[in-house]
Write a protein that binds this DNA or RNA. Structure first.
Lengths: 113, 113
DNA sequence: TTAGCATTTGGAGTGGACTCGAAGTCAAGC
DNA sequence: GCTTGACTTCGAGTCCACTCCAAATGCTAA
């Protein structure tokens, strides 16, 4: 698949996908002989994963570290730790979000500022 | 209350509070004769409100508009609309967050990348 | 009354995450 | 053979939301 197809498939700009590869947020994408990216299933999987994580607010830094560890042997625990930590972060955001939504609901329902 | 006290009370830097006032995210804070901010209950309320909204991810822009309308007569509906729209945005974030957390839970539980 | 610390303003600087631009290559169609 | 449009790299630019700085003023305590 070309970058354009992947970009449309996951609704991420081609620039963003190139940027993600450049900074190591997704692993190197295979190229054709002419140097053009040719996304295979694994690469698509990474794009999809990064999109999902990013849109929930997982930091770029954490994802880079994860991808980095992914290519080293015996780092399963470390990788899992990253996931656990990010999971905890999301949990916090979740609580905050819930509280704020309830507050907004109340404000909207009783609207008199 | 001084800005320092408010800053400690709500765990927001004094710089951020001044910034919020400057851009209109909170209304003008009353001053003493010497020009120093003297937060009353209303001002504290705005600080607390903005902190809550911001930490859930409500955009600065929307809050500025809200505060702006707040000081004009007959804008109740418009203000409520802002709240309703922001509520919907948070709802989307919430869904995204939930989905991502579930995905992480699964990945963590079955850890074999 | 002088030191030392908080506060004021306005403007400049920062960090994160993209987003764009320039200059070049390549394949397909006319 | 030439144009057109998608692709490449790499560096620069942008946007948002702060965060910091400088210079001036004010309050408190030795």
């Amino acid at each position: 698949m070309t970058i354009k197809e992947v970009s449309e498939k996951y609704d991420l700009s081609a620039d963003t996908i190139r940027y993600y590869e450049r900074i190591g947020l997704i692993p190197h994408v295979p190229r054709k002989e002419n140097g053009i990216r040719d996304f295979d299933e694994a690469s698509c999987g990474w794009v999809e994963f990064s999109k999902c994580m990013r849109s929930a607010g997982v930091q770029v830094e954490a994802l880079i570290e994860y991808v980095d560890l992914f290519f080293q042997e015996g780092t399963e625990e470390a990788r899992k730790d990253i996931l656990v930590e990010q999971r905890a972060r999301l949990q916090e955001q979740y609580e905050q979000l819930k509280a704020t939504m309830e507050r907004l609901d109340y404000k909207i329902a009783h609207y008199v500022p």
